[in-house]
């Protein structure tokens, strides 16, 4: 598999937080969702990739190039939307597009104009008068108008109302599918990731807890509802977050195919039921630990 982003032993220390020896690869042509609770290190990781903060150790390669030595070359091929949007706010969207166009090798004026129209961004209005949603859309328009090979989105939908959030995500989904782009989308809103990601990475307390394709992840992680006497102890011991309810117990397995055979009899008799889980269930399981 070809990787567009390769991270090796990446480390960043803050007084109250450590991003600890991150090893992480992003395959080319896919959407990678980066999920984690607030303060897990998602933004720090993305800023390190973008060379917006200095790493205390490790290496980042983007398009096979070192991200510090080839910063300009790499940023030319990355469309970045940060958690916060920064612009010269006394200027307009048109001015901003014109200004940034000089720094990107493949700036597409027509596409920028089309995106402004599509996002209903007033081209001549001062940016300081824009709503949060409009700023995100403007940021997205800039990020997508220079034909980037990699799109990095750090909590782009955070703080947006559900309608604009959905609009932005749907646009991104269509855009990435049509243009075969690689996307890294970080969010603590698992629903957003679930909508567009092909691969999922969970980040917890400054560490990568899990990386897997979404399909594999959702087929491996299942919620098992069982009567206490219907499952042997070895299977129960492998379940996470085992809870007792009035009508039985339930727990999460991270390797359903491995226990499928042990569950067969119970499934047939109706003593055991298996339910699909969402990405947030997995996040909670990982946060709570084994």
């Amino acid at each position: 598999m070809e990787y567009i982003l390769e991270i090796n032993k990446l480390r960043k220390e803050y007084p109250e937080f450590i991003l600890d020896n991150i090893d992480w690869n992003v395959p080319k042509g896919y959407v990678m969702g980066l999920i984690g609770p607030n303060g897990a290190g998602k933004t720090t990781t993305i800023k390190l990739i973008m060379n917006l903060i200095r790493a205390d150790g490790g290496h980042v390669k983007v398009f096979g190039l070192d991200n510090i030595q080839n910063e300009k070359k790499i940023k030319n091929k990355i469309g970045y939307v940060g958690e916060e949007q920064f612009f010269y706010e006394h200027q307009s969207a048109i001015w901003t597009g014109e200004f940034v166009s000089h720094f990107f090798d493949k700036w597409d004026r027509e596409r920028y104009q089309t995106l402004l129209e599509q996002f209903e961004i007033p081209p001549k209005k001062r940016i300081r008068k824009f709503s949060k949603g409009m700023k995100v859309k403007l940021s997205l328009a800039i990020a997508l108008s220079h034909n980037p090979e990699l799109i990095m989105l750090d909590e782009p939908t955070s703080g947006l109302d559900p309608i604009i959030r959905r609009e932005v995500l749907d646009f991104l989904k269509t855009f990435t599918e049509e243009n075969d782009k690689t996307v890294v989308l970080s969010s603590h809103i698992t629903d957003d990731i679930s909508r567009i990601a092909d691969y999922i990475t969970y980040m917890i307390n400054g560490r990568i807890a899990l990386t897997e394709s979404k399909d594999t992840l959702l087929s491996n992680w299942k919620k098992v509802h069982f009567m206490p006497e219907s499952l042997n102890k070895s299977v129960i011991d492998n379940l996470k977050i085992v809870e007792s309810h009035l009508f039985g117990n339930s727990g999460l397995t991270r390797d359903y195919p491995a226990i499928q055979e042990a569950l067969a009899q119970g499934l047939a008799s109706g003593d055991i039921k298996v339910e699909s889980v969402g990405l947030d269930d997995i996040l909670i399981a990982l946060v709570k630990g084994d």
């Binding site: 973008m50 300009k72 916060e84 920064f86 612009f87 010269y88 940034v100 720094f103 990107f104």
Partner: peptide, 18 residues
Amino acid sequence: QMESKSNGYAFLRILPIE
């Protein structure tokens, strides 16, 4: 002052500018 007010450096640093 203007750069500070509008976070100009943060904006410039996401562009391909060293």
